[in-house]
Amino acid sequence: MSMVRDRAPTRITAAATATFAVVGLGLIAALLLGAWPLIGEPRPLANLLGGLWDPLRGAYGLAPFFVGTVVVTATAMALTLPFSLAVAVVLSRPLPDGVRLGATRVLTVLTAVPSVIFGWWGLLAVVPWVRARFGGAGFSLLAAGLVLAIMVTPTLSLLFYQALRSVPRAFRDGSAALGATPDQTLVRMELPCALPLLIQAVLIAVARAVGETMAVQMVIGGQTVLPTGLTSPGATLTTQILTDMSIFPPGTRGHAVLDVMALVLMVGMYLLVRLAERWVAMP
């Protein structure tokens, strides 16, 4: 009896792992199978890396969306990184317990706000601001980056805070006892010690930014040619999947492109993770 009970958690865990493996591998297999008609064609790269997106005439150049994805994500990260780090540092400093608890609760609630809400807010506030400040349509990579930055900030702040909190109190005391100011302790001890976790946090934030679709689609403009600058409209791999998904039923050549785009996103994320691992040993 007790043996059965003891083994139940193991079985549940194993079943969950198996399900996860099947779903995950199934997803990758489905994407590969779906993408195969294009990957199997002669010169797939030349076609896929081109700058012209005219799928009804068979031109599947993804370059505008690569550029869009990279620029929007980089913009968002550049904007949110210093801000999120600042929030995390403030939270990790001596604070009245109530303030810290209140702030982390607010941040946690903010992480649950649906992305459509951020999209609406972007449409009402960010797009007009970009239009007033830089001219043009306002729908732009910059607007998308700004919306993403705001969206990712609560998550990233909390992850950064957790990373800084992982530095033992004894290290902080040790540093302070050697005459370090709080800022010196932060720069010379806490940040280096928390670096692996900080980088992991950044990767999670990048994954969220790269994968975000709806909020970005609402403010980016959806233009399918190579963007000429930060304030010009554009599209990302994900927004283009959303926009053109319904025109390509499964089994068509166009649908294969959507699968290629999804694969590219996964491979890109994998490469980023490997790069980060190479840079610093992950925990």
Binding site: W53, D54, L123, V127, P128, R131, A137, G138, F139, Q217, M218, G221, G222, Q223, T224, V225, P233, A235, L242, T243
Partner: peptide
């Protein structure tokens, strides 16, 4: 291809009103 893409009829109307 430089056009801005609005996902729905309503989004199109709102975008033209604003821009």
């Amino acid at each position: 291809p430089r056009a801005i893409v609005a996902l729905s009829n309503g989004a199109m109307l709102a975008a033209v009103q604003e821009t």
